[in-house]
Computed example of a mutant assay.
Amino acid sequence: MRLVSVGECMVELSADPDAQGRLRQGFAGDTLNTAWYARACLPAQDAVDYVTAIGTDPLSQAMLDFISGAGIGTDWIRRDPQRAPGLYLISLTEGERSFTYWRENSAARRLADDPAHLVTALCGADLAYFSGITLAILPPEGREAFLAALADTRRVAFDPNLRPRLWQSLTEMREWTLRGAAAAQVILPSFDDEAAAFGDADPAATAARYVAAGATEVVVKNGGSPMAAWCDGAPVPLPPVNRLQPRDSTGAGDAFNGAYLASRMHGASLPDAVAQGHAMAARVIDHPGALMPMECISANTAGRVEPIRGNV
């Protein structure tokens, strides 16, 4: 099995819990985060590849080494000598995160400049994954090229991950979100974002809108509140989950996506895959930053998240 994730990895700055007033540097980004947690859940013989563009500077090389060191394939990451990675700063208020970004000259904005490279990178993937941020950072011609490159991919998953500040207007964001959804079979939206952007009354309305756009599988995340899911033409009942107080909610939705997709790739039912997604997200919100170290995650070869004793 092979999963290919496409998007932007950035330099992450967050408060160092062990040194007040200092910042800790890491690397993260929504599509890399999902690839990271999928890699943690998938058996070793499965491949997880990341597709993006980075610079040729030392920080870009450190990013490349970091991704490769996690067992995520880097063969399809393009190098751009004229650009460097974007950067973001995490701010926390009672565990809920907000971000400040510096990404205008990010190399990842040019990841679709070579459409043939994209097509080759996606060739043979059992599942391709991208997000609304993947689309938002690209120029319009890059979005067109990227969606065209997905056309022959066996199965595509999409998290709209709506970020209005990345778009020229709400109308543009809505249009490209629905175009992205039309290129995918699996949609993993977050209800609070969708309600703000589309006026959805409840998660069921969000699911219905994406089913109408052509999705065959929709799971609407809702931060520990009641969710909605739809698969193969019918709604899927989901059991309630406990809402937890996060230490740091950064990356929780991406972690859910990674565990969910890994479970589905290996034949788990939709409700069981949702349970695995929740188990991973619950682990992540108790950890600072978007990415838990791989050694703190334990999963068996069926993509199930196993509990670990001690602190993570």
Rank of each mutant, 00 (worst) to 15 (best):
V4Y: 07
V4M: 01
V6N: 01
C9M: 13
C9V: 15
M10D: 07
E12N: 00
S14H: 11
G21R: 00
G21H: 07
D30Y: 03
A35V: 07
A35F: 06
L42M: 02
L42T: 02
P43T: 11
P43R: 04
Q45Y: 12
A47D: 11
D49H: 10
I54T: 14
I54P: 06
T56N: 08
D57P: 12
P58H: 03
A62F: 08
L64Y: 03
S68H: 11
G69P: 08
I72R: 06
D75Y: 10
W76T: 06
W76D: 13
P81Q: 12
P81G: 12
L87I: 04
I90E: 07
L92S: 09
T93A: 12
R97V: 12
F99W: 09
T100W: 13
Y101N: 02
W102N: 07
S106W: 05
S106R: 05
R109Q: 09
A112N: 06
P115A: 12
A128Q: 08
Y129P: 05
Y129E: 00
G132D: 13
T134E: 01
I137K: 00
P139K: 14
P140Y: 07
E141K: 04
A145M: 10
L147G: 00
A149I: 09
L150S: 09
L150N: 00
R154L: 03
A157S: 10
F158K: 05
L162S: 05
P164E: 08
W167P: 03
Q168C: 10
L170I: 12
T171N: 13
E172F: 00
E172W: 00
E172V: 14
R174W: 04
W176V: 02
W176S: 10
G180T: 04
G180S: 09
A181I: 09
A184Y: 01
Q185W: 02
V186F: 13
I187N: 02
P189D: 10
D192H: 07
A195M: 06
A207T: 04
A207F: 03
Y210A: 05
V211R: 15
A213V: 02
G214E: 09
T216S: 13
V218Y: 00
V220C: 02
G223C: 11
G224C: 13
W230H: 15
G233A: 05
L238N: 07
P239F: 02
P240R: 06
V241T: 14
N242K: 14
N242T: 15
N242Y: 10
G253L: 01
F256I: 03
F256G: 07
A259V: 06
L261P: 04
S263R: 05
S263K: 02
S263W: 00
H266V: 03
H266P: 06
G267C: 12
A268C: 12
V274R: 06
Q276M: 05
H278R: 14
A279M: 02
R283Y: 04
R283N: 03
D286W: 04
D286G: 14
H287E: 01
P288H: 00
P288V: 04
A290L: 12
A290Q: 09
L291Y: 07
M292S: 09
P293L: 03
C296M: 15
N300W: 01
T301M: 13
G303D: 09
V305I: 15
I308H: 12
